[in-house]
Amino acid sequence: MFRDALVIATKDLKIEIRSKVVTYQIIPLGLAVVLFFGISLNGSPDLLEKTGGGLYWIALLFTSLLAVSRSAAIESEDRAGEGLTLAGVDPAGMFLGKTLAVFAELTFVGILVGGALLLAFHLRLVGMPVLIVSGLLGIVGLASAGTIYGGLAGSTNIKDTILPLLYFPVVSPVVLAATRAWELSLGGHAGQSGVWVRILFVFALIYCVVGIIFYERILEI
């Protein structure tokens, strides 16, 4: 399973690097979201500082939608996913591999968007361990749930419109918990964010386990 996961993750990452979708589409979208938040909040330093954590996760949510959509499209184009299944690739490994690839992409995007947010919103980096742990757990939650729902929506006639409708509500607990953890941490109360980090861990675990169990059913034709 893990060997298959590494092979699939490498394949997806190579395709994404060659297609330059992350560089030319996903990162610019994240930066555009940050910019437009600043404009819509009238550039108010107090407001931007207070809402910085939440805005970061909304920006990451939008970019994750593109990443997940791309990840699903790779397998639905020319029925590549069916080819992998027929080649005997373990479905659980395929799920983990695709999740790992999306996780890597989102981590990269998250660092860049976070940097832009720090500069544009004048945020102070405090409570780094909580920011990193909750950030990574949140991205695992987004990537695993996104891979499941990308698979569910893939190859349907309305995949572009149905994916956000399925994906956004299901990842709302991840966004909520990550936002709270980041707000507490950036506000100098990192010690109070334990419950939110635990929620993020539980959700990431649930989505990963559900994906490992059910991805085979999603791929069945």
Partner: peptide, 21 residues
């Protein structure tokens, strides 16, 4: 979203499996 997924133009058995998940 679940109900919309049920309206997709997939094969009935594939649609049923995905909806169930």
């Amino acid at each position: 979203g679940y109900l919309v997924l049920r309206t997709t133009s997939l094969d009935p058995n594939v649609r049923a499996k995905r909806s169930a998940v």
